[in-house]
């Protein structure tokens, strides 16, 4: 199939960017979206134009490295990551706009590549369980009820891709943060630090310049791992509890 791509080009973090139009031809349905961009990049390279920079690593939908705003949708029209999006989701003649994640907490580095280290700093603020190596008790000493284990696992599936922030009209990172709060908060091991964790993560989140959540729900709709909105609720609940307990 043949497509018209409108792609954001920006030479560097401080450079001014613009949309550039590129036609591509003979795209096969079985290609992934990123393979389609690989083809374009080979052509650009052959023409002596610098290839388009975009992030990807595993190309299996698990590392969270990839992520593009495709015609206004984070990761494109399907509920999956950009690398797992295939061209069979498009039709011949389509015009596709491709933009980087837009959020001031995710500054653009080049073209479609953004800096998501703000997520790492949110985790540094408390997204962990303090268990020094070698100090762990026997794994079976603390059973975890299956429903709690399952809910924890569901939330732990977050890959940190940032699509939630990209899709949220407020550029809020609540879904990402809620997922971590729920993952650790459902487990007995996560209890001792529960209050401190939520307070300090939320404060880091606000400090990074993410927007506040107004419960729009676009985040969850865009999330490739289908993290449900109730993790945000869990976060709010934990936060209220922690504040009331005077954290």
């Amino acid at each position: 199939m043949n497509l018209t791509l409108k792609i954001w080009r920006q030479a560097g973090p401080k450079a001014k960017g613009e949309m550039v139009t590129y036609p591509v031809t003979d795209i096969s349905e079985d290609m992934s979206f990123l393979e389609m961009l690989d083809v374009l990049n080979e052509q650009l390279n052959a023409r002596g134009e610098e290839p388009i920079a975009f992030d990807s690593d595993c190309r299996e939908g698990i590392c969270g490295m990839c992520g593009l705003m495709i015609s206004g949708k984070a990761h494109g029209p399907e509920v999956t990551t950009t690398c797992q999006l295939h061209m069979r989701s498009f039709s011949d003649g389509d015009e596709i706009t491709i933009e980087p994640w837009r959020a001031d907490a995710f500054p653009v580095i080049k073209d479609l590549v953004v800096d998501r280290s703000s997520f790492d700093r949110i985790i540094q603020a408390g997204g962990f369980i303090s268990a020094n190596t070698g100090s762990a008790p026997e794994a079976h000493s603390v059973p975890v009820p299956k429903p709690k284990a399952d809910r924890s696992f569901m939330a732990a599936a977050c890959i940190g891709c940032g699509a939630c922030v990209a899709a949220c009209p407020n550029a809020s990172g609540m879904l990402f943060m809620g997922a971590k709060i729920t993952h650790l908060g459902e487990l007995p091991q996560g209890q001792p630090e529960r209050d401190a964790r939520v307070v300090s993560m939320v404060s880091q989140h606000d400090h990074e310049g993410f927007g506040g959540c107004t419960n729009v729900g676009a985040c969850s709709a865009a999330c490739p791992k289908e993290i449900p909105l109730d993790v945000i609720n869990q976060l709010n609940k934990d936060l209220r509890g922690a504040l009331m307990r005077g954290e």
Partner: peptide, 19 residues
Amino acid sequence: RARGARTTRYVAKQAAQAT
């Protein structure tokens, strides 16, 4: 704060219900 959190807007406006 939301405005401050995304000072560069998207070119493709999302027609999603959510917005």
